[in-house]
């Protein structure tokens, strides 16, 4: 009996915290699905209508389609580079334990604590010198760099937990060690890779601080830039803003929901050991 009471209380708490987490999304949905003629602060609405005009209008005036394409290119590019480089580096840190590797790793970890703003002006000068303003490739490199330390940290921890015997077998079969890494070890890294992809993918997708400087052309704007400009231009029109935000948030939310299973596995694998 007592057990059932506990279970019931647990259930209630779980439902409450879930609703709490969903609350802003619910408010956003109400706004986005309400005709703009309804004044929210005067009349409280608790159920979303089925009114889609806000989305159509927001889509038309916000140019968010192009922003989604830009965000997609930059995110996929940066994440790919990040995964390749940091898995290699993580392997080096975990398996080739010499002083150079250790120092390089510590330097990069230490940099995680440095406020990014300190770099703004010098980085901007650098970007101009290499012709990187308003280009996808330079933005990809900058953002891939920013998330390197954390990825290497996750990879090295995970690789440290893999038995050495697996790659040693491959080396005996005639593989070089680097060959063994790509052929044997890398495929084993899928759980931690998916964690890296999701964590860094989200922070790159949501990046604002760098994008605001390096992507100035209107045709190069990413989703956070497009939405924040939209907020500026149509600040009083909450209904349109909510619709634009929902369009902009949707890709991240859906990708997350699709991949969340691997993500949890990756987190388990990458963070608990190491």
């Amino acid at each position: 009996m007592k057990q059932y009471v506990y279970r019931f209380i647990r259930l209630i708490i779980i439902i409450t915290i879930s609703l709490l987490a969903l609350f802003p999304f619910y408010v956003l949905a109400i706004l986005a699905f309400t005709p703009s003629s309804v004044n929210f602060s005067e009349k409280l609405i608790l159920l979303p209508n089925l009114y889609f005009d806000n989305f159509i209008e927001a889509w038309k005036i916000s140019n968010i389609g192009q922003a989604i394409a830009n965000s997609l290119i930059i995110t996929v590019g940066a994440v790919t580079i990040n995964v390749v480089l940091s898995s290699m580096a993580g392997y080096a840190v975990a398996r080739v334990k010499n002083k150079t590797n250790k120092i390089m790793f510590l330097i990069m970890l230490g940099c995680m604590m440095i406020p990014g703003i300190i770099n703004t002006v010098p980085l901007y000068t650098l970007m101009i010198a290499i012709g990187g303003i308003n280009t996808h490739w330079a933005m990809i490199l900058v953002l891939a760099t920013n998330s390197l330390p954390f990825s290497i940290f996750l990879y090295s921890g995970f690789i440290g937990g893999i038995p050495k015997t697996i790659e040693e077998a491959a080396i005996i079969d005639g593989c070089s060690r680097i060959g063994a890494f790509f052929r044997v070890v890398f495929p084993l890294l899928k759980p931690v890779t998916s964690a890296v992809v999701i964590i860094n993918g989200l922070s790159i997708w949501n990046n604002y601080a760098q994008a605001v400087f390096f992507l100035q052309k209107q045709s190069m704007k990413t989703i956070p830039l497009a939405i924040s400009m939209f907020f500026q231009q149509y600040g009083a029109k909450w209904h349109l803003m909510a619709a634009a935000s929902m369009i902009g948030l949707a890709p991240a939310v859906f990708t997350f929901i699709i991949f969340q299973k691997y993500f949890i596995k990756g987190i388990t694998a990458g963070s608990v050991k190491g």
């Binding site: 084993l188 759980p191 691997y262 596995k265 388990t268 050991k273």
Partner: peptide, 13 residues
């Protein structure tokens, strides 16, 4: 546990 989770992940991956 870790090993099986690799395998499990592999197919779905």
């Amino acid at each position: 546990v870790v090993k099986t989770s690799y395998r499990e992940g592999y197919c779905k991956m």
